[in-house]
Amino acid sequence: MDIPPLTNGYEIVYKKPQTLTDTPMHYCPGCGHGVAHRVLMEVVEEMGIQDRTIGVAPVGCSVFAYDYMNIDMQEAPHGRASAVASGIKRVLPDRYVFSYQGDGDLAAIGTGETIHVVNRGENILMVFINNGVYGMTGGQMAPTTLLGMKTTTTPYGREVKTAGHPLRITNLVAQLPGACYVTRQAVHTPTTVRKLKKAFRAALEYQQKQQGTCFVEVVSNCPSSWKMTPAEANKWLEENMFPFYPLGDLKLPAQSN
């Protein structure tokens, strides 16, 4: 986007980072992916590591993340982003490597990879976008779908009896010794966005210290699948998602002496 010339006496205090491309994002209006993409790329820009960062996109709505992030990227098979990221990091250990996955990708089809990548303590950042629904395929139940939540495959609301419990995989991951830093953040308000940025920054900095896997969950929305306006979706998020997926740090790195 062209930046208009500076108005007399004014300076730019916020603009899109150069680490995002000019391709308009395909996400639905109000979708949290766009903010998560931007904040992650802001950190890459501010740390000056664009030339040393390699990302892995998942299958799901963010499959095209590589169209928007102006860095080298690979697109992984469904559920395998963290395995692909492990492969990259093992052969290029001095690079910053991250995987970016949704709830279906990371916590259903890719659960095995998620657990073992963290258990091996791969020095990567795993970004986990949790909106409780399969967005790309049209709003089916995700492993993180809340009880009672209606999706196209739980049209009467998710029931424990048939569909089991929503999975707090971040809590599971935080138990593993290979995890360095595990946190749950959000993207729906200016305050949560600022906190998320700090979390991404910390996670990428820890990666260089080689202390293990950093895992950042972002509790996000899906206005289209939730059949709400973006503002309604963010309100619903606070009232329903946060009680089950409370924000905050689940594991902090061990203090090095």
């Binding site: 395995a83 990259i88 990091k89 093992r90 095995g112 990879e113």
Partner: peptide, 26 residues
């Protein structure tokens, strides 16, 4: 040379994908 025992053949081939994409002979 990196030699890694993966948790499954599925994970192993995807590590191969990542490493090959990063330019390694795998």
């Amino acid at each position: 040379c990196v030699i890694l025992q993966a948790e499954s053949e599925l994970a192993a081939i995807n590590m191969i994908y990542g490493a090959s994409g990063a330019g390694a002979r795998v």
